[in-house]
Design a protein around this nucleic acid. Structure first.
Lengths: 147, 147
DNA sequence: ATCTTAATGCAAACTATTTGCATTTGAATT
DNA sequence: AATTCAAATGCAAATAGTTTGCATTAAGAT
């Protein structure tokens, strides 16, 4: 079931390559944004990424604009935790679709692979004859530490 | 599997009763808000509910405040379609948990009962030992009409 | 009829995000 | 290396959705 093809490791270099192949210029802000997303997984908001800039070397608006560009280029994915803040994470491959289990206390994020369950979901939905069905699915709870 | 107890029909009267039992006063805005939510199912935003007021007889801020109150009283549920707008719908009973399949074209909303799938979801998540696990799950696509 | 507190109106504040416009800069081209 | 030009940026202002402070009003208990 699992693909035998090893996942091509995502590096800052490969990401900067992707920029190029998407017709996006390699600018300092973009380097920092991609570097930040590469450093840790948890989806990050524009603010969080922005705070990561050592010397506020670019405008917050630039972060927003770039996140939109990177999303269009399918290099990052937008996550919705239902709190009115958009968060983004790197897309590691075409088939790295997953969800999150977020602790309401410490905000720790567990990665969930619900691939099989989603097949079931598609079955359920088939009768409605909708095309291009996508979904948002995020889980919340209290982690062992915070209980 | 399905409960034999017939669902106690939700009426404007029963809703106004619920207001009382939740220590909430019966005010004109509240009557209209509940009436609106009772009229059709689709989760509605504060704006949409507000527009339903025949003569703008109350302030939009009042609608927001009341939606918050009604949510706290567990009379309505907040839905998140990932577009930065909060939408609300009546809770018809303790066990009326469901999701939506929303057409990206005409915005038509289908109600999905994914109860069984959610049991599976809980199984998947068990190993993380999170407590009080909740989730948001909404589906989007293009309905037959809009294809 | 009175009283107390919750509910409301109105305006201002707030948060996350977007946009207009002048300026700068990456990178393709000479 | 210098030129060029669209793309990217900075900055400030605009926007959307929602919340809040405060003085006033009214629901419903006494």
């Amino acid at each position: 079931m699992a693909k035998k093809t090893k996942a091509p490791e995502l590096t800052l270099e490969s990401l900067l390559e992707s920029l190029k192949s998407n017709g996006l210029k390699l600018t300092p802000p973009r380097k920092i944004i991609l570097g930040t997303l590469l450093k840790s997984h948890g989806p990050f908001s524009a603010e969080e990424i922005y705070k990561n800039f050592a010397k506020k070397t670019c405008d917050l608006a630039t972060v927003y604009r770039n996140l939109t560009h990177l999303e269009n280029a399918k290099m990052i994915r937008r996550c919705d935790f239902g709190d009115g803040v958009a968060r983004y994470e790197l897309i590691h491959s075409d088939h790295d679709h997953h969800h999150h289990l977020i602790c309401k206390g410490c905000k720790k994020v567990e990665i969930l692979d619900l691939c099989e369950m989603e097949n079931l979901l598609n079955l359920y939905v088939k009768k409605y004859d909708f095309k291009n069905v996508t979904h948002i699915l995020e889980l919340f709870g209290t982690c062992p530490n915070c209980q």
